[in-house]
Design a protein around this nucleic acid. Structure first.
Length: 229
DNA sequence: GCGACAG
DNA sequence: ATCTTGTCGC
């Protein structure tokens, strides 16, 4: 099964988490993929409002056929609250637990959230890349940091996301006339590479298949947990 | 000081 | 994120 080494503890205050992100940002490497990817994983979390139980899931698919080749789900407990900019501290631990259950080691990982399109360049995709030692990028449904111009209405059109004079991601139209998604590299991949993979994962919906299937998986896991059959 | 603020 | 049905537009 997939493994990872301990990078840092998770039990800390929001202020300490911010300080840790400032240290970790120095480790981020944005560069073209060094190996062509064959498999891609999508990660997501689901939970009931006001409850601490979280359902984390990862779906692995082949990039050429978009066929699902593995999926794992775990039930865990979140201790950290949701704080904009500190999402990793709430969802990261559960996702790592799910990762440990994988038999396949995905070539690249897509997250529901941002990579370096973050106030401190340490969105969940960037942060998890450091833990997984693997190319990662984020596909968010809304913006956390940065500004952008509206991309043309046709699928494939995109406009850069600018934050403090730097291009940190892109607003990408994954389907004609639907709101764009926000793609940003996290680790060991660059923006062109992340955009290419996202478009290759099109299954007819606004959200790319890895993240979309992971979302369906964790919601199913949560509901069967409430109503066991 | 005020507004913004991934999931 | 989650709670939820129908409905307007392409």
């Amino acid at each position: 099964m997939a493994t990872h080494h301990t990078l840092h503890p998770w039990d800390m205050s929001p202020a300490e988490a911010v300080a840790l992100q400032q240290e970790l940002r120095e480790l981020i490497q944005i560069q073209p993929l060094t190996q062509p990817a064959t498999t891609i994983a999508g990660c997501d979390i689901s939970f009931n409002k006001f409850e601490e139980t979280v359902y984390a899931g990862i779906v692995v698919l082949r990039l050429d056929t978009l066929e699902t080749i593995e999926e794992v789900g775990v039930v865990s407990t979140a201790t950290f609250p949701y704080v904009p900019g500190l999402l990793t501290f709430r969802e990261g631990p559960a996702l790592l637990a799910a990762w440990e259950q994988l038999k396949i080691e995905p070539d690249v990982v897509m997250f529901d959230g941002h990579g370096i399109a973050h106030p401190r360049r340490m969105g969940i995709a960037a942060h998890m890349g450091l833990w997984l030692h693997r190319p990662t990028f984020g596909c968010g449904k809304s913006v956390l940091a940065g500004r952008f111009e509206e991309p043309a209405p046709t699928r494939g059109s995109w406009e850069p996301m600018i934050h403090r004079s730097a291009t940190v991601g892109a607003a990408l139209r994954t389907k004609d006339k639907v709101n764009p998604v926000f793609i940003s590299p996290g680790y060991l991949i660059d923006l062109p590479g992340a955009l290419d993979l996202t478009l290759r994962c099109h299954g007819g919906y606004r959200l790319p298949e890895p993240t979309r299937r992971a979302h369906l998986l964790v919601n199913a896991l949560r509901r069967e947990h409430l109503a066991p059959s």
